[in-house]
Simulated assay, not measured.
Amino acid sequence: MGYTVPANTEYFYNEVTVPTGQDKIGSYFMANGFNGGYAGMQVNSATEPRILFSGWDADSGAKTTLVRKGPNVVDNGFGGEGTGGQSYLLYNWTAGNTYRFLTRAQPDGAGGTDFSAWFYTPETATWRFIATWKRPATTTYFAGVYSFLENFNPDNGYMERSVQYGNQWARTTAGTWSELTSARFTGDATAANAQRMDYAGGVQNGRFYLRNGGFFAAYVPINQTFSRPATGQQPTVNLSTLP
């Protein structure tokens, strides 16, 4: 699901709900993606649920570096589909609960941009800081904002998974919050080439949703735009007191 945000968007807010029973191993429920990185929830094993925030290296090849991280957050590099820095928190999130993600893009005035991510836990009613990554040779606010649903374990392609995203908001550098009520539904090469057609997306229960895996038949064609009803519920987050 791709969202169009206003110019000079500094913060992006999203709420993610994995329906009960849909938290299959090998799933990545990515909430806050952008040109430069992404944040969301993973199921790496039956005992290893993660909150993940990664930043890509610069297009020039210059390395993204860690500025700071929150308590108990693990950081390392990653490779494979591109290279960059990765940070994650082992957190036993629960399917059926709604979690909140907030990301920030902040040019540092020296040719780089700092990307930060926070995660709100309803179990403790607190915001948790994940990390700030500095991407060099990049001066930008948010662009290309999106969410995705991924199966990163090919052996689990027979398992169906789904996710709902609701109440998306963007905040500009001028301090104005804007609700985002439309999203563009797209797919990767596997979907575009019709190698597999067990995928769907749209609006469900007032939220955008994504679904894939399990070989279901009722697919929804990609490359179309959906609109959800506005909530009018601006994020109740105090940016000045975030950890």
Rank of each mutant, 00 (worst) to 15 (best):
Y91A: 12
A174Q: 12
K24T: 13
Y199Q: 00
T139S: 06
W169G: 01
K69T: 06
Q224I: 10
E150I: 07
N44W: 12
V145L: 11
F129A: 02
A170F: 00
W133T: 01
V16P: 00
T236A: 15
M1S: 10
A143L: 09
T113I: 01
E179I: 07
N76P: 06
Y209P: 05
N97A: 14
L52E: 10
N14Y: 10
E150Q: 14
G77R: 15
A125I: 09
Q42A: 06
T190K: 12
G166Y: 02
Y146L: 13
P71A: 15
G109V: 00
Q106P: 06
F29N: 03
G175D: 07
T17I: 10
G112Q: 00
T186W: 14
S116Q: 01
Q195A: 13
D57Q: 02
Y209M: 05
P235I: 03
R196E: 11
P136D: 14
A217R: 14
N35C: 08
G37V: 11
W118C: 03
Y141N: 01
N72C: 12
T64V: 13
T225M: 06
S45I: 05
D23P: 03
V237S: 08
L89T: 07
L239N: 02
T225G: 04
A62S: 15
A131L: 08
V5N: 01
A131P: 10
F208R: 05
I25V: 15
G70R: 05
E123I: 12
G40C: 11
L52S: 11
Q168M: 14
G37S: 02
L149T: 00
A131K: 08
T64Y: 06
A191F: 14
F29K: 10
W56N: 10
T17P: 02
N32T: 14
Y165M: 03
A62M: 04
T190F: 12
M1Y: 12
N205E: 10
A200N: 07
T98H: 04
R135P: 00
A230L: 09
W169L: 02
F142Y: 04
P221Y: 04
V237T: 15
A110P: 07
A7F: 08
T126R: 14
G85W: 04
N151A: 07
I130N: 01
R211N: 11
P107F: 00
K134M: 13
F115M: 04
T241E: 11
R171D: 03
G85Y: 06
G232M: 00
I51F: 12
G85R: 09
M1R: 08
Y158R: 13
Q106G: 03
P136K: 02
N223I: 08
F185M: 07
T121F: 08
L242Q: 03
G144H: 14
A137D: 05
T64A: 03
P243F: 02
N167F: 13
P19S: 09
N35W: 04
V5R: 08
Y91P: 06
F215I: 11
V237E: 01
Y13D: 09
T140W: 08
R50N: 14
W93H: 09
T140S: 15
Q204N: 15
W177V: 03
G206P: 01
S240M: 11
P221I: 04
W177T: 02
F215M: 13
Q204C: 12
Y120A: 10
R50Y: 14
Y88T: 08
S227K: 06
N35V: 14
Y13G: 01
F53L: 07
M30Y: 11
Y141T: 07
A200W: 14
F78K: 13
T172F: 10
Y38A: 02
G202D: 00
Y11L: 01
T139H: 10
N72S: 15
N156I: 04
